[in-house]
Simulated assay, not measured.
Amino acid sequence: MSNPWFIDNVHILMRLLIAMLLGGLIGFEREHNNHAAGLRTHILVCLGSALIMLLSIYGFSAFVDEINVRVDPARLATAVITGIGFLGAGTILFTGKSITGLTTAASLWVVAAIGLAIGAGFYFAAVVSTVLVLLNLWVLNKIEQRFLGGKKVQLLTVRAFGKHDLLDHVSAKLTAQGITVRKMTLLENRKPLENELDLHMELQLHIVVPKPIEPPAIMSEIKSIDGVFGVSIE
Rank of each mutant, 00 (worst) to 15 (best):
T82G: 13
A126N: 07
P210L: 13
L199S: 03
G101T: 10
F124E: 15
D198S: 07
N33R: 15
V64D: 01
V181H: 01
A77G: 15
V131Q: 01
I43K: 02
H164S: 10
G85Y: 11
R40F: 02
F6M: 09
Y123K: 07
A77P: 01
L25A: 05
L102R: 04
E29R: 05
G227N: 12
T175H: 10
V158W: 09
N195P: 00
L102V: 14
A125E: 14
Q177N: 11
L193R: 12
I143C: 04
G101W: 04
T157R: 15
L39K: 05
G88M: 06
G48I: 10
F147W: 15
G83A: 09
N33C: 01
W5M: 07
K151F: 15
T103S: 09
L25T: 01
L132A: 10
I67C: 00
R182A: 03
I67R: 07
A172P: 00
Q177T: 05
S107E: 05
A106S: 13
I207A: 01
L25R: 02
L108Q: 04
A79Y: 14
Y123M: 13
A106N: 05
I118G: 01
G96Y: 09
A160K: 12
A113T: 08
G48Q: 12
H206Q: 14
L22R: 08
Y58N: 06
G119V: 10
P212T: 13
L199A: 06
E29F: 02
G178K: 11
A79P: 00
I92T: 06
I43D: 02
G85M: 12
V133S: 01
N189V: 02
L197G: 00
E31N: 07
K152S: 07
D8I: 09
S129L: 11
T82M: 02
E188D: 06
P215W: 04
S220W: 03
E194D: 09
E66I: 02
P212I: 13
A125K: 09
N34D: 12
E221L: 13
I218R: 06
S49H: 08
D8M: 08
W5R: 07
A79S: 11
Y58I: 06
R15H: 06
V181I: 15
G149Y: 13
T100S: 11
T100Q: 13
I222F: 07
D72Y: 14
C46Q: 03
A113F: 00
F124M: 13
I57N: 09
P212K: 14
G230C: 02
I7K: 04
A77I: 08
G88P: 00
F161G: 00
R159D: 03
